[in-house]
Amino acid sequence: MSQEKLVEIKNLKQHFKTGRHSVVKAVDGLNFNIYKGETFGLVGESGCGKSTTGRTIIRLYDATDGEVIFDGENVHGKKSREQLKKFNREMQMIFQDPYASLNPRMKVADIIAEGMDIHGLEKDAKGRESRVHELLETVGLNKEHANRYPHEFSGGQRQRIGIARALAVDPSFIIADEPISALDVSIQAQVVNLLKKLQEEKNLTYLFIAHDLSMVKYISDRIGVMYFGKMVELADADELYKHPIHPYTQSLLSAIPLPDPDYERTRERFTYDPNNHDTSEEPEFREVRPGHYVLCTTKEFEQYQREHGTGK
C-alpha cells in the first residue's frame, strides 16, 4: 500500500435542516485521508453519519462546509459538466440494498452500460456488448444474464450486478455503502471475496462503510469509528481491534457477538457513557500511538498515553 493520498477529507460538514430552527449535524467536521490502493473502513451505529459521509464524498449531497480533495482537486464547489463527468468516472458507488438500487424496468445489460453510454466509452454496439459480457464474467455472472431483468436474480447476484455497474467506467475509487448487510451470511463471503479479488486486479481504493465490525476488520486496512457525526478513533485495522482506546470503540467491540460459545460465556460487555468525558475543553484528534488517532482532550490524551503507551 502506497502512502500517496487519493482522497483527502478536510473538515467535512453536512448539516440538514429539519425545521425552521433545528439542524441535524449528520457529519460534523471530519478529517481523514484515504491512501491509494487501501480499503478504508468506516464503522458506527445507525444514525452516526457514516452513510452521509460516503454520499457527501461522492457529491450526492452538497457539503455544508469543508473540502473533499480527490487526486489533488476539490470535488465540491462549482463545476462544469465536463469536470463533473471526470469525477464521476473516477469515483463510483455500490449501494446497500440490491433490491432498490437497480431499476426494475431496465435490462441488466443497460444497467451496466448506462455509465459507459453517458461517458461515451464504447461507440459501437458490438464493443458495448462485449464489454458488458466481460464485466459480467468479472463479477462471476455469465453473459446469458445480460438480457434479463433484475427481478430474475437473487440478492447476491444483484449485488454483483451493482458491482459490475460500478466497474463499467473504470473507476479508481469505489465507495461501498453497506454492500453486504442485506445478504445472507454465505453470500456475504462470496461478495467480500469478489471485492478483494477486484481490488488486487484493478488496484482499486475502497471506502467500505458497514456496521458489521468483524467483516470490516477482515476487509479493511485502516478503520475509522464514527459517533454522532464525528470520528472518535482511527487506526490500522489490527491495531484498532487489539488496542481500542476511545471508550466508545471499546464498548462497540465488546458488543460484537462472536461465533465461539466459550468466549460468549465469559464475555463482559462494556457500556459507553458519553457523560464520562472530560468536558473542560473541546476534544481534538490526537495521535496516541503511532498511526492511531483518538478524539480526546489534553487531560484524556495524557491518560490514554499512560494507559496505552506509545508503540509496543
Binding site: A189, S214, M215
Partner: peptide, 15 residues
C-alpha cells in the same frame, strides 16, 4: 464464511 477477529488475510470460505 464468518471472519474471526484474529483471522489474517486468507480468503473467506464461501459456499
Amino acid at each position: 464464511s464468518m471472519p474471526s477477529l484474529d483471522s489474517e488475510d486468507e480468503e473467506l470460505y464461501a459456499i
